[in-house]
Design a protein around this nucleic acid. Structure first.
Lengths: 210, 210
DNA sequence: ATAATTTGGAAATGATCGTTCCCAAATAGG
DNA sequence: CCTATTTGGGAACGATCATTTCCAAATTAT
């Protein structure tokens, strides 16, 4: 006997919200916005450009997001989520601490080459363009850097524990310079002259683990 | 006997140009513009802001410079000139190749700390904000990077020649990563949390010379 | 069915942007 | 002294910006 008959349909899922349903996926739209913000930066990315890239009218945009800054912050958060997921799955393939560090460096090197390199990193772009003027943006950049630094540090300790990284290496200090190198690769990638440049940097950086 | 008497005054200095003389020093005005462009970036720096910072009216600005982009490029060139002069005089104090490399790293570390760190580097800002959209800006960034890389490489060779840098160090490869570190320091400096951070990075980087 | 609510889409809005124009002031040449 | 030229300064201009408004369409709830 089915007690939840048509008499109590209000307790079904959270149910579909009332009103006309949204005709686009927010995350798909944000993925398009990420490209625009990465290539053009925050200020040069106009609502017109975002509209066209995201395939939305102004009305729809402003019903989904409070204002331009909200679109940007949502794009930033989505960017971090996607990139972090990719990075973590790459690191997970590593066999030991040293290998994991190398995979992380290679991950950034690959992103710094070719078209994605020219497109740029949203974190680096936000740091340089918005950190000084917008507290919310600055806080997101700080959090991103802090988490990366903590991740690197833990991988360094893992490497020291499994014997693949020299005991003399100072994890906090080395984590700082490795993060610095990854950010630097993204800057160099914006005008990336020669291909393979970033991979050479990644390999050379491994010297810091000896 | 003075043949260039008042009869041929046209051969005196290049002489003062005709018309009302300019009442401000272009280089002083550019120094103010550099601060605005560094802090705000190209697009967020409005002509109104530049006018106020440079102490000029719109008319005067546009008589001295073709357009906003020309103000920016002149600021960039001035920035490079001033910073390069400071860097070279710092490097000149070095006693050997290794010491010169360390002084260069310290020079970037100092610029990455505190208020100048938060203000940011005009080269890094130009790379991230303009390189993809403006060929002139991109070319200047590429030239700046190429010259820095060449300078570092020559210092590395100097250090190998005087015995302060290990012979096993690969100058081109190590120059690339050191430049990468310097650019990265400037990115980290934008949200610079803890002071001294950049100096620790500079010291750790010296490990790459062993 | 009807009301309530939310979205899609395009037109309208006010602000600000970069740039030009205009006139008075300052200089050089004749 | 007069003309030509250049700058200083501010008003004026058209374009574009981010945002709002308005109406038809789509959905849920009653």
């Amino acid at each position: 006997m089915d007690t939840n008959s048509p008499s109590t349909p209000a307790l079904r899922p959270p149910g579909r919200p009332i009103g006309r349903p949204r005709e686009f996926e927010i995350e798909e739209a944000l993925d398009k916005a990420i490209v625009v913000f990465s290539e053009r930066g925050y200020h040069a990315a106009s609502i017109s450009e975002l509209k066209e890239a995201m395939g939305l009218a102004a009305g729809s945009l402003y019903k989904a997001f409070k204002d331009k800054k909200a679109i940007f912050l949502a794009s930033f958060d989505r960017y971090k989520q996607v990139r972090n997921a990719l990075l973590e799955s790459e690191i997970a393939k590593g066999e030991n601490g040293r290998d994991k560090i190398f995979r992380m460096l290679r991950f950034y090197a690959e992103a710094s080459e070719g078209e994605t390199g020219r497109r740029g990193c949203l974190v680096v772009g936000t740091a340089t363009e918005l950190a000084i003027a917008d507290a919310d943006a600055a806080e997101r950049v700080r959090l991103s850097h802090a988490r990366s630094e903590a991740l690197i540090e833990s991988l360094l300790r893992e490497g020291q524990a499994d014997g693949t990284i020299a005991a003399g290496v100072d994890p906090p200090q080395t984590a700082k310079i490795l993060l610095c190198i990854m950010q630097g690769m993204r800057v160099m990638g914006k005008t990336g002259a020669d291909t393979g440049h970033a991979f050479l940097v990644a390999e050379t950086a491994m010297k810091l683990l000896d």
